[in-house]
Amino acid sequence: MTKPKALLIDVTKCIGCMACYYACKEANKLPETEKVEEDLSATNYTVVKETDGVFYRKLCMHCNEPTCASVCPVKAFEKTPEGPVIYHDKKCIGCRYCIQACPFDVPAYEWKSNKPLVKKCTMCAQRQKEGKITACAEACPTGATYFGDREELLAEARKRIQENPGQYINHIYGEKEVGGTSVLIISSIPFEKFGFRADLIEKPLSDLTWEIMSKIPNYVVVSGVFLYGIYWIINRRMELSEYNKSKNRDSSEDKN
């Protein structure tokens, strides 16, 4: 059985060389732009940015229980057992609920296209199938982006934090956020400073809707029976009163 893979991003090791950015463009055949793209977009799946002298990356987090996959009405997103969250572009109808709902603001839309699709990092699912590691991890000269088994990377991240308590804040971003992700980040400064959401819950966001959605079959049966019951009871009572009225009328006619 394949163990789920992950990326460990150690921002303390990132030197901001942009090798991952260009490797990603190449691996995904994304168009080169004149200026370096500042944000994720339909033509750009990762960015390297700097805050307080610290470089960090942004890319799809490849959630264990992806919000995009939960909200998509046509199941265009799929979490593969190997880790990547992949997109089936043939299914997509373009409702953009994935873009609206993603807690990491990752999926991007081809706004300029007439047959627009959603675009985001694939965690190089295709390369992984060929036995290779992700393009960004392969290109990284310092090991700041590191590819491996999720369990092992988690252990490695914990080890680094424990062994260098001054160097890291005690938090592995992506270990528990929204049920855990396949991208794990450790940092020397709080994650809010990178613009990452610090208020994310630890259970998958999809649980919030499933609590309601899972009750629907029951609701349909119960309310169907209930409504028909109301109809039947009132109907019966009206029939009876009708009948009694006519009987009373008959009996009073008899007396006369």
Partner: peptide, 13 residues
């Protein structure tokens, strides 16, 4: 596609 690709987890579905 709503008719053939089902996702019972999706509210939009």
């Amino acid at each position: 596609h709503l008719l053939i690709y089902w996702n019972p987890h999706s509210v939009l579905f």
